[in-house]
């Protein structure tokens, strides 16, 4: 199979999940667009050097996460003030629906407000449903560190939310 064909199938298979992952990191749709492009340009450029030591998925996710972290370190990020919350509720919705949506919103806010190393572990483990070994490969840390971070992230969420949402 030619590299171009492999790339086409990777774009097809991972385009959506990578873009969602990036959005959860940066929480801004326009920046997500840009970073997603950058990730796949890198994937394309490095296709011939990929050594198959890990799966394509792990490799692409690692590129995506590093791209996000580079962005957080960049000048552009430090100059931006985020206000990314988009409310979907409206005043005509029944009260109970509003309450349920608010509960969700608070849990999301608590997750997204975690320091990046705990936020990413929650996203990768609970959202992307990756195995500890895969996360360990992506983040280049050992599995025991992944376990510790998951546990610490859960405790931080409990501390923020008083445990109500984590039961």
């Amino acid at each position: 199979m030619r590299d171009e064909d492999v790339f086409d199938s990777l774009l097809e298979e991972y385009g959506e999940s990578v873009k969602r992952l990036i959005f959860l990191y940066v929480r801004d749709k326009a920046i997500t667009d840009d970073l997603t492009q950058e990730v796949f340009i890198k994937v394309f450029s490095h296709m011939n050097t990929f050594e198959h030591n890990s799966s394509y998925k792990t490799w692409i996710y690692r590129i995506a996460i590093n791209q996000c972290k580079d962005y957080f370190r960049s000048w552009t990020y430090r100059k931006i003030i985020f206000n990314p919350f988009i409310e979907k509720t409206n005043d005509n919705t029944p009260e109970q629906i509003l309450i349920r949506e608010d509960e969700k919103s608070l849990l999301t806010q608590a997750i997204l407000s975690l320091p990046i190393k705990y936020r990413e572990i929650i996203i990768l483990f609970y959202y992307n449903e990756l195995k500890m070994k895969e996360i360990s490969n992506i983040l280049q840390v050992n599995e025991s560190t992944v376990k510790t971070r998951i546990s610490r992230a859960r405790n931080l969420l409990k501390k923020k939310l008083g445990g109500v949402y984590l039961e």
Binding site: L24, E101, K104, Y127
Partner: peptide, 15 residues
Amino acid sequence: IRDNLEDFIGEEKLF
């Protein structure tokens, strides 16, 4: 957590 984050991203296809 998955449902909450899915809600935050929205149902629309991003890519």
